[in-house]
Simulated assay, not measured.
Amino acid sequence: MAAARIYKPARTAMQQGLAAARDWVLEFEPQAARTIEPLMGWTSSADTRGQVRLTFATKEEAIAFATRHGIAFRLEEPQEAKVRPKSYAENFKFGRPDRWTH
């Protein structure tokens, strides 16, 4: 049986919020190597499971789906984002480590 990977995608650098990073994703690992088609040079694969990407609201739903269907999976826990409190006033405080450059 094909192995799958369950993870929570990281947000992109262009996003401010967590809207696209809320769901958990189940993706199948590739079983066959990709081949280059000799005439046109396109990259193709006979593995159709590589096109499947399932999203779930919670980690438990994704795990339950995989176990219910007999899919071996690898769970990747997300790294917690470190929020450093900062304010605009810190740019002007006395004794700041860097010089004011404006």
Rank of each mutant, 00 (worst) to 15 (best):
M1F: 06
A2V: 10
R5S: 07
R5V: 14
R5K: 09
I6C: 03
I6T: 04
Y7K: 11
K8Q: 14
P9Y: 00
A10Q: 12
R11L: 08
T12V: 12
A13H: 15
Q15L: 14
Q15A: 13
Q15T: 12
G17Y: 14
G17W: 14
L18H: 07
A20G: 13
A20V: 10
R22L: 12
W24M: 10
E29I: 06
P30Q: 04
P30L: 04
Q31G: 10
A32T: 11
I36H: 11
I36M: 11
E37D: 10
P38R: 01
M40I: 09
M40D: 10
W42S: 15
W42E: 12
W42D: 15
T43V: 14
S44R: 12
S45E: 03
D47M: 04
D47Q: 04
G50V: 07
Q51D: 14
L54E: 01
A57G: 10
A57T: 10
T58I: 14
E60Y: 04
E60H: 05
E61D: 10
A62T: 02
A62Q: 02
I63M: 08
I63D: 00
I63E: 02
A64W: 06
F65Y: 14
F65R: 01
A66D: 00
R68E: 12
G70E: 03
I71P: 01
A72L: 07
A72R: 09
A72G: 09
F73L: 13
L75C: 05
L75K: 04
L75A: 04
E77C: 03
E77F: 00
Q79V: 15
A81P: 03
K82H: 09
K82C: 03
R84V: 14
R84P: 00
P85A: 13
P85C: 05
Y88Q: 08
Y88R: 08
E90N: 04
E90I: 03
E90D: 15
F94Y: 09
F94L: 09
F94P: 01
F94T: 08
G95T: 04
G95R: 15
G95K: 12
G95A: 11
R96C: 02
D98F: 12
R99G: 06
W100Y: 10
W100P: 00
W100N: 13
W100F: 08
H102F: 12
